[in-house]
Computed example of a mutant assay.
Amino acid sequence: MSIATSQVDPVRQARANVAVAVRLGKDATEARRTLHAAKLERAIMEAVNAAPPLTADQRATLAQLLTSGGGR
């Protein structure tokens, strides 16, 4: 029996890391941050792949939103 060489789902891996940290009684803050980022990445990729191509202005607006932390 061989081990699959396909990539592990980042959300699934991050969720497992949160579970391990909690189970071991460790601070899960960073693991939860990574899980949240993986979920955001997945949602953004799904939205981008489903939408028609963006204009340069639209890409710039979205990039600014993401790099500014949502205007916080």
Rank of each mutant, 00 (worst) to 15 (best):
T34R: 08
R42N: 10
T34S: 05
T55H: 04
Q7P: 13
R12G: 10
A37P: 01
A37G: 05
A51M: 11
D57N: 05
R33Y: 05
K39G: 09
Q13L: 11
V22P: 00
A38Q: 07
Q13W: 00
E46N: 10
L65T: 07
D27A: 08
A19R: 06
I44P: 03
V8M: 13
L54Q: 15
A51Q: 09
Q64Y: 03
M45W: 02
N17C: 08
G71V: 09
G69F: 01
A47H: 05
D9L: 02
G25I: 02
R72F: 08
N17P: 14
R23N: 06
Q7L: 15
L65I: 13
A56H: 12
Q58W: 04
P53M: 02
T5A: 15
A56V: 11
Q7R: 06
N49V: 13
M45Q: 12
V22C: 07
Q7N: 04
A14Q: 01
D57M: 07
S2A: 14
L40V: 03
H36D: 15
D9R: 02
P53T: 02
I3A: 07
L24N: 10
R23K: 06
A4Q: 12
A51V: 05
T34A: 12
A4V: 15
R33W: 08
R32F: 00
G69M: 13
T61H: 05
N17G: 06
G71I: 07
N49F: 04
S6G: 12
L62H: 00
R32K: 09
L62V: 10
V20D: 10
A19T: 05
L40K: 11
Q7E: 12
D27H: 02
R59N: 03
D9S: 01
T5M: 13
H36W: 01
L24H: 01
L54I: 14
P52A: 02
P10V: 01
R32S: 00
A21V: 09
A16W: 02
R32W: 10
N17Y: 00
R12K: 14
P52D: 04
Q58V: 07
L62N: 00
L24I: 09
Q64M: 11
G70L: 09
D27Q: 07
A31T: 04
P10M: 06
A4I: 10
V20A: 03
I44A: 12
I44D: 13
Q7K: 10
G71C: 05
Q58K: 01
A43F: 02
R15K: 15
I3Y: 09
M1E: 09
Q13N: 12
